[in-house]
Design a protein around this nucleic acid. Structure first.
Length: 259
DNA sequence: AAAAGCAACAACCGCCAGGGG
DNA sequence: CCCCCTGGCGGTTGTTGCTTT
């Protein structure tokens, strides 16, 4: 018996999401919350499979996401956590509020790996690389990290996945908490978004368009208030009589509306 | 200015685990 | 206990934009 596809793929759209699709998904989730993903595309009027919607939301549209490059501190956290956890990106991401496993994975593959190699460190073992002339043939082929995903049997010496962290990790946890309290960070616990707090992406572009110069700020509110995106949200019933007295807070890459 | 190559990252794919019936 | 469904995960691919030639 063959495996059932996650969804009926006939007539479903693939590839990059359009702004319109993003709006539909955001509107739906802001209104209804995260429910059964399988039902989301149908209810939201999207020609996507539920899995695709979930991925788009968790990796890109979630209001609590940070955008932009990882800071030096975050990068160090990733390296340290990777040394302890291996390629368990979701576990690593859970220590970095606002970052997704996909984002960290991509950053690791494109930036950190190279950086470590430059520094003479094997990105997989986190040990110093042997001099080039001593390199084993197998070293060109990346050794497979412990496959935690498949079995969870080969736990790292100290499993940081549970509440008890190895001493070094615990220290980092404390350090981290000095900046951000991550001790009980959990995406599930973040309210999808309260009706009175909507993070609105930049005008005309639902993903990151950092506000790089103050000169652009003057028009932001106007652009925002008259964007299709905003009007659509405002037309939603939950906003009836609600949007008088809105305040606009401008962050690096998003706008927070409060009333 | 155009073409080729490269890097970055969004999105997809397939597998697995857990929960419910 | 078994089967099915759903969500989550990690690996991989495709696309886009930038840089170099």
């Amino acid at each position: 018996m063959g495996r059932q596809p996650c969804c009926d793929k006939v007539g479903l759209k693939k590839g990059p999401w359009t702004g319109e699709e993003d709006q539909k998904l955001i509107n739906f989730i802001l209104t209804n919350g995260q429910c059964c993903w399988r039902a989301v595309p149908k209810l939201a009027g999207l020609l996507r499979c539920g899995k695709s919607c979930r991925l788009r939301w968790t990796n890109y549209l979630r209001p609590d996401l940070k955008r932009g490059l990882l800071s030096e501190y975050e990068e160090k956290m990733v390296i340290d956590l990777h040394a302890k956890l291996g390629n368990r990106w979701s576990k690593i991401a859970s220590h970095l509020p606002g970052r997704t496993d996909n984002e960290i994975k991509n950053h690791w593959n494109t930036h950190i790996k190279k950086k470590l190699k430059k520094m003479g460190i094997d990105p997989l073992t986190h040990q110093p690389l042997p001099p080039p002339h001593q390199a084993q043939p197998s070293s060109c082929q990346e050794p497979t990290p412990p496959d935690h995903h498949k079995t969870e049997v080969v736990a790292p010496p100290h499993s940081a996945t549970e509440t008890t962290l190895p001493p070094s990790a615990a220290v980092e946890e404390n350090t981290m908490q000095g900046l951000i309290d991550t001790s009980d960070f959990c995406i599930d616990e973040i309210p999808v978004v309260q009706p009175h707090e909507i993070i609105v992406p930049c005008e005309g572009n639902l993903y990151s368009t950092p506000v790089s110069s103050s000169s652009s700020l003057s028009n932001l509110a106007e652009q925002l208030l008259f964007s299709d995106y905003f009007s659509e949200i405002m037309n939603d019933s939950i906003w009836e009589d609600e949007y008088r007295g809105l305040e606009l807070f401008i962050d690096n890459d998003s706008y927070l509306l409060k009333y």
